[in-house]
Simulated assay, not measured.
Amino acid sequence: MRITIVTDAWHPQPNGVVRVNDTLRQTLERREHEVQIIEPSHFRCMPCPTYEEIPLALFPRRRVARMISEFQPDAIHIATEGPLGFAARGLCLRRRWPFTTAYHTKFPEYIAARTRLPLDRLYAVMRWFHGPSHAVLCPSPSVERDLVARGFTNARAWSHGVDTHLFHPQPKDFLDLPRPVFLYVGRITVEKNLPAFLDLDLPGSKVVIGTGPQREVLEKKYPQVHFRSAYGDRELSRYFASGDAFVFPSLTDTFGLVMLEAMASGVPVAAFPVTGPRDVIGASGAGIMDTDLKAAALKALTIDPTVARAHAETFSWERVADEFLSFLAPLPGREATRPGV
Rank of each mutant, 00 (worst) to 15 (best):
V148I: 12
E216T: 10
R30H: 14
A135G: 06
T254R: 02
L218N: 04
V18P: 00
E34V: 13
P118Q: 09
A102Y: 04
A79P: 03
D253E: 15
M289C: 14
S41V: 10
H168W: 09
A297E: 04
L137D: 07
P171H: 06
V181Y: 00
S205H: 07
A241H: 01
P118W: 11
R319L: 11
G210A: 13
A102N: 10
I54F: 12
R215W: 07
I38W: 06
P132R: 05
T50P: 02
T115L: 05
P60A: 03
H226A: 05
R179M: 11
A297R: 00
G256K: 01
A283E: 15
P118M: 09
A112W: 06
Q36E: 15
N154C: 09
M126K: 06
G340S: 14
S133A: 15
R31A: 14
R94P: 02
E313I: 04
V6A: 01
G186F: 00
L183P: 00
R179H: 12
G186Y: 00
F248H: 10
A65R: 11
G287S: 09
G232K: 01
I78C: 05
P273I: 07
F182A: 00
I5A: 06
D322K: 02
L58S: 05
S229M: 12
R187G: 09
G151R: 11
L293Q: 02
L119S: 05
G82A: 07
P273E: 12
D22E: 15
R309A: 12
D8E: 11
S142V: 08
M67S: 05
P273W: 09
D8I: 02
D120S: 11
D120C: 02
K106Q: 13
G210E: 08
I76M: 04
Y51W: 11
V341M: 08
F167Q: 00
H77I: 03
R94A: 14
G90A: 11
A87W: 02
T80F: 07
K294L: 04
M67C: 03
H226M: 06
S140Q: 08
R238D: 11
T115V: 04
Q224K: 10
T80P: 03
V307E: 10
A310F: 08
A286G: 01
T105W: 03
D290F: 08
G131H: 08
T100L: 09
I5T: 05
G243L: 00
R94I: 03
V307D: 07
L93S: 09
G204A: 12
R30G: 15
S316D: 15
L325K: 03
S69M: 04
I68V: 14
P178Q: 05
D244C: 00
P55G: 07
A9R: 02
T302W: 06
F315M: 12
R234C: 01
Y222F: 14
E219Q: 15
V274G: 03
W97E: 06
R31T: 09
I54W: 12
R156E: 14
L200G: 01
G276E: 08
H77Y: 05
E81N: 03
A112I: 04
R156Y: 11
D253N: 02
H42Q: 15
D253T: 02
E70F: 02
A112P: 07
G285I: 06
S69C: 03
Q214C: 12
